[in-house]
Design a protein around this nucleic acid. Sequence first.
DNA 1: TAGATATTTAGACAAATTTCTAAATATCGA
DNA 2: TCGATATTTAGAAATTTGTCTAAATATCTA
Lengths: 92, 92
Amino acid sequence: MSFNEAFKAIADPNRRKILSLLKKGDLTAGEIAEHFDMQKPSVSHHLKILKQADLVEDRRVGQHIYYSLNTTVFQDLMSWFYDILQKEGDKS
Amino acid sequence: MSFNEAFKAIADPNRRKILSLLKKGDLTAGEIAEHFDMQKPSVSHHLKILKQADLVEDRRVGQHIYYSLNTTVFQDLMSWFYDILQKEGDKS
DNA sequence: TAGATATTTAGACAAATTTCTAAATATCGA
DNA sequence: TCGATATTTAGAAATTTGTCTAAATATCTA
Protein backbone atom coordinates (compact mmCIF):
# COMPACT_ATOMS: atom_id res chain seq x y z
CA MET A 1 0.00 0.00 0.00
CA SER A 2 2.96 2.33 0.43
CA PHE A 3 4.11 2.21 -3.19
CA ASN A 4 1.92 5.12 -4.22
CA GLU A 5 2.49 6.87 -0.91
CA ALA A 6 6.23 6.67 -1.50
CA PHE A 7 5.97 8.23 -4.94
CA LYS A 8 3.92 11.05 -3.48
CA ALA A 9 6.37 11.46 -0.63
CA ILE A 10 9.36 11.96 -2.90
CA ALA A 11 7.45 14.40 -5.08
CA ASP A 12 8.18 17.19 -2.62
CA PRO A 13 11.61 18.81 -2.85
CA ASN A 14 11.84 19.42 0.90
CA ARG A 15 11.25 15.75 1.55
CA ARG A 16 13.82 14.73 -1.03
CA LYS A 17 16.25 17.04 0.72
CA ILE A 18 15.51 15.32 4.02
CA LEU A 19 16.26 11.96 2.46
CA SER A 20 19.53 13.28 1.05
CA LEU A 21 20.51 14.59 4.46
CA LEU A 22 19.80 11.23 6.06
CA LYS A 23 21.92 9.47 3.48
CA LYS A 24 24.98 10.82 5.27
CA GLY A 25 23.84 9.57 8.64
CA ASP A 26 21.00 9.58 11.13
CA LEU A 27 19.78 12.92 12.42
CA THR A 28 17.36 14.15 15.06
CA ALA A 29 14.23 16.03 14.08
CA GLY A 30 15.83 19.21 15.34
CA GLU A 31 19.02 18.73 13.35
CA ILE A 32 16.98 18.15 10.23
CA ALA A 33 14.92 21.26 10.90
CA GLU A 34 18.09 23.37 11.08
CA HIS A 35 18.57 22.81 7.36
CA PHE A 36 15.25 24.42 6.46
CA ASP A 37 13.61 27.81 6.59
CA MET A 38 10.34 26.22 7.65
CA GLN A 39 9.10 26.08 11.20
CA LYS A 40 9.67 22.86 13.10
CA PRO A 41 6.08 21.65 12.99
CA SER A 42 6.25 21.82 9.20
CA VAL A 43 9.38 19.70 9.14
CA SER A 44 7.74 17.31 11.56
CA HIS A 45 4.84 17.01 9.14
CA HIS A 46 7.18 16.10 6.28
CA LEU A 47 8.90 13.54 8.47
CA LYS A 48 5.55 12.00 9.24
CA ILE A 49 4.77 11.64 5.56
CA LEU A 50 8.14 10.03 4.90
CA LYS A 51 7.56 7.68 7.80
CA GLN A 52 4.11 6.69 6.59
CA ALA A 53 5.64 5.93 3.22
CA ASP A 54 8.20 3.70 4.93
CA LEU A 55 11.04 5.77 3.55
CA VAL A 56 12.38 6.61 6.99
CA GLU A 57 12.27 5.12 10.46
CA ASP A 58 12.40 6.88 13.78
CA ARG A 59 13.59 5.93 17.22
CA ARG A 60 13.51 7.91 20.39
CA VAL A 61 16.70 8.47 22.36
CA GLY A 62 15.92 10.49 25.43
CA GLN A 63 14.41 13.79 24.44
CA HIS A 64 15.50 13.34 20.85
CA ILE A 65 13.94 11.39 18.04
CA TYR A 66 16.42 10.09 15.52
CA TYR A 67 15.45 9.59 11.93
CA SER A 68 17.15 7.21 9.54
CA LEU A 69 16.70 6.03 5.97
CA ASN A 70 14.80 2.85 5.31
CA THR A 71 16.11 1.80 1.93
CA THR A 72 13.86 -1.17 1.31
CA VAL A 73 11.08 0.81 -0.34
CA PHE A 74 13.57 2.64 -2.54
CA GLN A 75 14.27 -0.68 -4.18
CA ASP A 76 10.62 -0.99 -5.17
CA LEU A 77 10.55 2.49 -6.64
CA MET A 78 13.71 1.77 -8.59
CA SER A 79 12.11 -1.37 -9.96
CA TRP A 80 9.33 0.69 -11.43
CA PHE A 81 11.85 2.82 -13.29
CA TYR A 82 13.75 -0.20 -14.52
CA ASP A 83 10.53 -1.65 -15.79
CA ILE A 84 9.70 1.50 -17.72
CA LEU A 85 13.16 1.80 -19.20
CA GLN A 86 13.51 -1.72 -20.43
CA LYS A 87 11.30 -2.15 -23.45
CA GLU A 88 9.27 -5.30 -23.97
CA GLY A 89 8.30 -5.56 -20.33
CA ASP A 90 4.82 -6.65 -19.38
CA LYS A 91 3.90 -4.93 -16.14
CA SER A 92 0.55 -3.19 -16.43
CA MET B 1 14.24 22.73 -14.35
CA SER B 2 12.21 19.64 -15.15
CA PHE B 3 13.79 17.46 -12.46
CA ASN B 4 11.29 18.51 -9.83
CA GLU B 5 8.49 18.65 -12.38
CA ALA B 6 9.25 15.05 -13.32
CA PHE B 7 9.07 13.85 -9.73
CA LYS B 8 5.73 15.58 -9.35
CA ALA B 9 4.51 14.13 -12.61
CA ILE B 10 5.17 10.54 -11.60
CA ALA B 11 3.55 11.07 -8.22
CA ASP B 12 0.12 10.57 -9.77
CA PRO B 13 -0.96 6.94 -10.34
CA ASN B 14 -2.89 7.79 -13.49
CA ARG B 15 0.19 9.36 -15.00
CA ARG B 16 2.34 6.40 -14.04
CA LYS B 17 -0.21 4.20 -15.76
CA ILE B 18 0.07 6.30 -18.90
CA LEU B 19 3.84 5.87 -18.87
CA SER B 20 3.45 2.12 -18.45
CA LEU B 21 1.06 2.00 -21.39
CA LEU B 22 3.49 3.91 -23.57
CA LYS B 23 6.29 1.51 -22.67
CA LYS B 24 4.67 -1.03 -24.97
CA GLY B 25 4.45 1.38 -27.87
CA ASP B 26 3.23 4.78 -28.96
CA LEU B 27 -0.46 5.56 -28.57
CA THR B 28 -2.80 8.36 -29.58
CA ALA B 29 -4.46 10.51 -26.94
CA GLY B 30 -7.73 8.72 -27.68
CA GLU B 31 -6.23 5.27 -27.27
CA ILE B 32 -4.72 6.29 -23.97
CA ALA B 33 -8.04 7.70 -22.79
CA GLU B 34 -9.74 4.36 -23.49
CA HIS B 35 -7.80 2.86 -20.61
CA PHE B 36 -9.26 5.28 -18.08
CA ASP B 37 -12.60 6.10 -16.52
CA MET B 38 -11.83 9.81 -16.70
CA GLN B 39 -13.14 12.13 -19.35
CA LYS B 40 -10.83 12.90 -22.24
CA PRO B 41 -9.99 16.45 -21.14
CA SER B 42 -8.71 15.06 -17.87
CA VAL B 43 -6.45 12.62 -19.67
CA SER B 44 -5.30 15.44 -21.91
CA HIS B 45 -4.41 17.39 -18.80
CA HIS B 46 -2.28 14.53 -17.48
CA LEU B 47 -0.56 14.22 -20.85
CA LYS B 48 0.25 17.89 -20.74
CA ILE B 49 1.90 17.53 -17.35
CA LEU B 50 3.94 14.56 -18.55
CA LYS B 51 4.97 16.53 -21.60
CA GLN B 52 6.01 19.57 -19.57
CA ALA B 53 8.11 17.25 -17.43
CA ASP B 54 9.78 15.91 -20.60
CA LEU B 55 8.64 12.41 -19.80
CA VAL B 56 6.69 12.08 -23.05
CA GLU B 57 6.78 13.61 -26.51
CA ASP B 58 3.91 14.15 -28.88
CA ARG B 59 3.62 14.34 -32.64
CA ARG B 60 0.57 14.99 -34.76
CA VAL B 61 -0.34 12.54 -37.48
CA GLY B 62 -3.44 13.80 -39.22
CA GLN B 63 -6.26 14.12 -36.74
CA HIS B 64 -4.39 12.09 -34.18
CA ILE B 65 -1.68 13.07 -31.77
CA TYR B 66 0.69 10.28 -30.91
CA TYR B 67 2.41 10.14 -27.55
CA SER B 68 5.67 8.36 -26.87
CA LEU B 69 8.05 7.90 -23.96
CA ASN B 70 11.05 10.16 -23.66
CA THR B 71 13.40 8.11 -21.55
CA THR B 72 16.16 10.66 -21.12
CA VAL B 73 14.67 12.25 -18.01
CA PHE B 74 14.06 8.84 -16.45
CA GLN B 75 17.81 8.42 -16.32
CA ASP B 76 18.10 11.56 -14.19
CA LEU B 77 15.43 10.36 -11.79
CA MET B 78 17.13 6.99 -11.50
CA SER B 79 20.40 8.75 -10.70
CA TRP B 80 18.78 10.40 -7.73
CA PHE B 81 17.75 7.00 -6.38
CA TYR B 82 21.18 5.54 -6.96
CA ASP B 83 22.66 8.44 -5.10
CA ILE B 84 20.42 7.89 -2.11
CA LEU B 85 21.04 4.17 -2.01
CA GLN B 86 24.78 4.26 -2.17
CA LYS B 87 26.07 5.47 1.17
CA GLU B 88 28.99 7.87 1.42
CA GLY B 89 27.84 9.99 -1.48
CA ASP B 90 28.11 13.76 -1.33
CA LYS B 91 25.21 15.23 -3.27
CA SER B 92 23.34 17.80 -1.22
C1' DT C 1 -16.91 24.39 -47.75
C1' DA C 2 -19.67 21.67 -44.28
C1' DG C 3 -19.97 18.08 -41.12
C1' DA C 4 -17.60 14.56 -38.47
C1' DT C 5 -13.81 13.11 -35.59
C1' DA C 6 -9.74 13.96 -32.48
C1' DT C 7 -7.83 16.66 -29.20
C1' DT C 8 -6.92 20.67 -26.39
C1' DT C 9 -8.14 24.91 -23.82
C1' DA C 10 -10.87 27.55 -20.50
C1' DG C 11 -13.03 28.04 -16.41
C1' DA C 12 -15.27 26.24 -12.28
C1' DC C 13 -15.15 23.53 -8.14
C1' DA C 14 -13.98 20.09 -4.63
C1' DA C 15 -10.31 17.76 -2.48
C1' DA C 16 -5.60 17.48 -1.15
C1' DT C 17 -1.33 19.73 0.23
C1' DT C 18 1.74 22.92 2.59
C1' DT C 19 2.59 26.03 5.91
C1' DC C 20 1.71 28.57 10.07
C1' DT C 21 0.72 29.43 15.29
C1' DA C 22 -0.71 27.61 19.59
C1' DA C 23 -1.08 23.88 22.51
C1' DA C 24 -0.05 19.16 23.98
C1' DT C 25 3.19 15.36 25.11
C1' DA C 26 7.59 13.31 26.48
C1' DT C 27 11.99 13.41 28.66
C1' DC C 28 15.74 15.29 31.24
C1' DG C 29 18.08 17.42 35.23
C1' DA C 30 18.05 19.96 39.49
C1' DT D 1 8.12 17.62 41.26
C1' DC D 2 9.26 21.83 38.29
C1' DG D 3 11.12 24.08 34.61
C1' DA D 4 13.57 23.61 30.33
C1' DT D 5 14.18 21.33 25.95
C1' DA D 6 12.62 18.38 21.98
C1' DT D 7 9.09 17.06 19.27
C1' DT D 8 4.42 16.24 17.74
C1' DT D 9 -0.56 17.25 17.30
C1' DA D 10 -4.46 20.24 16.27
C1' DG D 11 -6.65 23.36 13.62
C1' DA D 12 -6.78 27.25 10.33
C1' DA D 13 -5.59 29.57 5.93
C1' DA D 14 -3.60 29.79 1.34
C1' DT D 15 -2.17 27.29 -2.59
C1' DT D 16 -2.08 23.47 -5.67
C1' DT D 17 -4.14 19.58 -7.89
C1' DG D 18 -7.49 16.64 -10.28
C1' DT D 19 -11.69 16.41 -12.44
C1' DC D 20 -15.69 18.00 -14.88
C1' DT D 21 -18.52 20.43 -18.72
C1' DA D 22 -18.58 23.54 -22.48
C1' DA D 23 -16.25 25.60 -26.08
C1' DA D 24 -12.37 26.12 -29.27
C1' DT D 25 -8.97 24.31 -32.64
C1' DA D 26 -7.20 21.13 -36.13
C1' DT D 27 -7.75 17.77 -39.63
C1' DC D 28 -10.18 14.69 -42.67
C1' DT D 29 -13.69 13.46 -46.14
C1' DA D 30 -17.46 14.13 -49.09
